[in-house]
Simulated scan of single mutants.
Amino acid sequence: MRRRCKGGTPRQGRGRSRGGFSTKIHLPTNGEGLPVAVEIAPGPTSDYTGAVPLLDADGPEPRGVIADRGYDADHLRETMHARSITPVTPSRRNRRVQIVIDGHIYALRNRIERYINNETCVRLA
Score class of each variant (00 low, 15 high):
95 R>V: 14
39 E>W: 05
24 K>T: 08
106 Y>M: 05
27 L>K: 05
10 P>M: 03
9 T>Y: 15
44 P>Y: 07
107 A>F: 12
79 T>H: 08
100 V>S: 11
39 E>Q: 04
28 P>A: 05
102 D>P: 04
5 C>Y: 06
30 N>E: 04
86 T>G: 03
64 G>D: 02
41 A>W: 04
114 R>I: 10
101 I>R: 08
47 D>F: 00
5 C>H: 11
60 P>N: 03
38 V>C: 10
123 R>C: 06
62 P>Q: 00
104 H>W: 07
88 V>N: 12
30 N>R: 00
101 I>K: 07
54 L>K: 00
121 C>M: 06
120 T>L: 13
40 I>Y: 08
123 R>I: 05
104 H>K: 10
82 A>D: 14
50 G>N: 00
40 I>Q: 02
95 R>W: 14
32 E>Q: 11
109 R>D: 09
61 E>D: 01
13 G>F: 12
83 R>W: 01
73 A>C: 09
20 G>C: 04
42 P>I: 03
109 R>W: 13
68 D>S: 09
96 R>N: 07
67 A>L: 15
83 R>F: 02
111 R>L: 13
94 N>R: 15
15 G>Q: 09
23 T>P: 08
58 D>L: 09
87 P>C: 01
6 K>G: 14
124 L>I: 09
35 P>D: 10
104 H>I: 02
27 L>A: 03
79 T>Q: 10
